[in-house]
């Protein structure tokens, strides 16, 4: 069985967001790009499952431009075998369902039997693409896992449930899993592996090559009018001796802010 892992490049989490002049997105001139932090857990899980003999090969699937290749090389150095990068001008206007269609088609073309994704990409914070892929492929899905055991064609996973609870679930492969913090500790690339990764293949495909038309990724959702959240009113520092300050704070919380 081949193992697929979906990696997306996103702005680093410490990015200061500046909205572009047309309010259609953020300015990216000064942005440092990284693999989506949750996708690091997905990659690590894929590599570990392969090492445990559950799969033969780890194939990275991504939709993105050539500028993502540096980060993809880094992911190859952390244990993946090769990359299929879908790149097509029609993807520029796509929404989550469009991305899912492209990734599902790529997963099918590569004949993967299990797919690891992040719980959400921290740019749009949708958390939508993986379950859409699962539906398009007719596969099982488990969201927000922090534990997984694969046993032949079946699996047991721990997923998040409501109110901070967890659920232990079982089901049958093929399946899509979205990975949460706590699932594993992602490794760093070592120097020899960075060197070895330079020779691993990155194949680029357009939509036509995976059997999709531009119309198949037309968006059903429009996001417009990006703005910054309202600034918080200036706060106040409390000074004086500690016991007085503590009493004053509790009084303010009760009488001024009315939150206790």
């Amino acid at each position: 069985m081949k193992i697929g892992v979906c990696l997306k490049q996103v702005p680093a989490t410490d990015t200061r967001v500046v909205v572009n002049p047309t309010a259609s997105g953020i300015l990216t001139n000064d942005v440092k790009w990284e693999i989506n932090p949750y996708d690091d857990y997905a990659l690590e899980e894929a590599v570990r499952q392969k090492a445990a003999g559950k799969g033969t090969e780890v194939v990275i699937l991504t939709v993105g431009g050539a500028e993502t290749e540096q980060r993809l090389r880094d992911a190859l150095a952390r244990g993946a075998d090769r990359v299929v990068r879908v790149d097509d001008p029609a993807m520029a206007g796509a929404d989550a369902l469009g991305y899912a269609r492209a990734l599902a088609a790529a997963a099918k073309a590569e004949d993967v039997g299990v797919l690891f994704c992040g719980r959400q990409a921290v740019d749009g914070d949708n958390g939508a693409v993986p379950a859409m892929i699962a539906e398009l492929l007719g596969w099982s899905q488990v969201s927000w896992i922090d534990k997984l055991a694969i046993d032949g064609g079946s699996f047991t996973a721990n997923r998040a449930a409501g109110g901070g609870a967890k659920e232990v679930v079982t089901g049958a492969l093929p399946g899509v899993f979205t990975c949460d913090k706590g699932l594993n500790e992602p490794r760093m690339a070592t120097l020899p592996n960075i060197m070895a990764a330079k020779k691993k293949p990155i194949v680029v495909k357009n939509l036509d090559a995976i059997g999709l038309s531009a119309g198949a990724v037309a968006p059903l959702v429009a996001e417009t009018a990006m703005s910054l959240p309202p600034a918080r009113p200036a706060g106040r520092k409390l000074t004086g001796d500690a016991a007085t300050v503590a009493a004053e704070l509790v009084r303010l919380l009760r009488e001024e802010a009315k939150v206790i």
């Binding site: 929404d95 989550a96 369902l97 899912a100 749009g124 914070d125 949708n126 958390g127 939508a128 693409v129 993986p130 379950a131 859409m132 699962a134 539906e135 398009l136 899905q141 969201s143 927000w144 997923r159 998040a160 449930a161 409501g162 968006p219 059903l220 959702v221």
Partner: peptide, 23 residues
């Protein structure tokens, strides 16, 4: 926007071709 919606809505979106506005 809880775990039920997070898990079910995107799948439903793909099944019936419904746009999904998240959280």
């Amino acid at each position: 926007a809880n775990q039920v919606a997070r898990d079910a809505f995107p799948r439903l979106s793909a099944r019936i071709g419904a746009g999904y506005a998240v959280e």
